[in-house]
Write a protein that binds this DNA or RNA. Sequence first.
DNA 1: GCCCATAGTGTCGAGAAGGATACCGTCATG
DNA 2: CATGACGGTATCCTTCTCGACACTATGGGC
Lengths: 123, 123
Amino acid sequence: MARVRHDRLDCSPGCAVEATLQFIDGKWKGVILYHLLAGTLRFNEIRRRLPSVTPRMLTTQLRELEADGFVARKVFAEVPPKVEYSLTERGRTLEPVISALKAWGDANADLGPMRALNDVVAA
Amino acid sequence: MARVRHDRLDCSPGCAVEATLQFIDGKWKGVILYHLLAGTLRFNEIRRRLPSVTPRMLTTQLRELEADGFVARKVFAEVPPKVEYSLTERGRTLEPVISALKAWGDANADLGPMRALNDVVAA
DNA sequence: GCCCATAGTGTCGAGAAGGATACCGTCATG
DNA sequence: CATGACGGTATCCTTCTCGACACTATGGGC
């Protein structure tokens, strides 16, 4: 399960903020959700988009997102294995949140080398 | 300083999401920002809104927010001491983000006992 | 026969985050 | 004289997170 940031949500009414944060906190969840917003992806497709994530981390993050009801995991009984990850309906409700995070990041973060990287990807 | 979630932001273009998360991550930052959006607060005023935060944690979180340029700390040379915390202009740019987080939390989180707590506060 | 890709799992250990508790000086109040 | 409010610090210690690395099974291509 996801990290429990607060066992008691006694920060009313701002606690709703923390309650949401609780779900997308986790080192890679934000990006994973972002990429899944664009469509279904397989395990290694996600990996390729997140060059520095270890398989172990990716697994745990995806499992937590699944446990929280945000992503669906579809296993194909094939060889080689094939597993597809996609957003659930609940997962898609996070879209405004992810968008807001992305918009702020684009506008305010000095991503430094990232800008170049973005250009590369855009090309 | 704030927790460094990623030393390399090589998750382009979703990294903007993580970049933002990096700032509001930290166990109490979300709520603190939320409360400061409503107006300037003194140290103990924030504490009272966050019953289970220890002074130590509150200090570190506020200091990190200050270091990141989101909140301004104004000390009054009085006795007893008086310190006011308010959002900077940059801090206010986070408003859409906090709002999105809050909106999702209100709509989707089962806050359980929180609803009652909210009522108490609203009364 | 060997290596690659697929989608993971297991274990280990370092390092960071966060909680508990006690304490600081000053002034006003009872 | 003692207590409380104010805005913190200092110290210690536990918990959690995360990264590294090795390893699994299967089948296809060279």
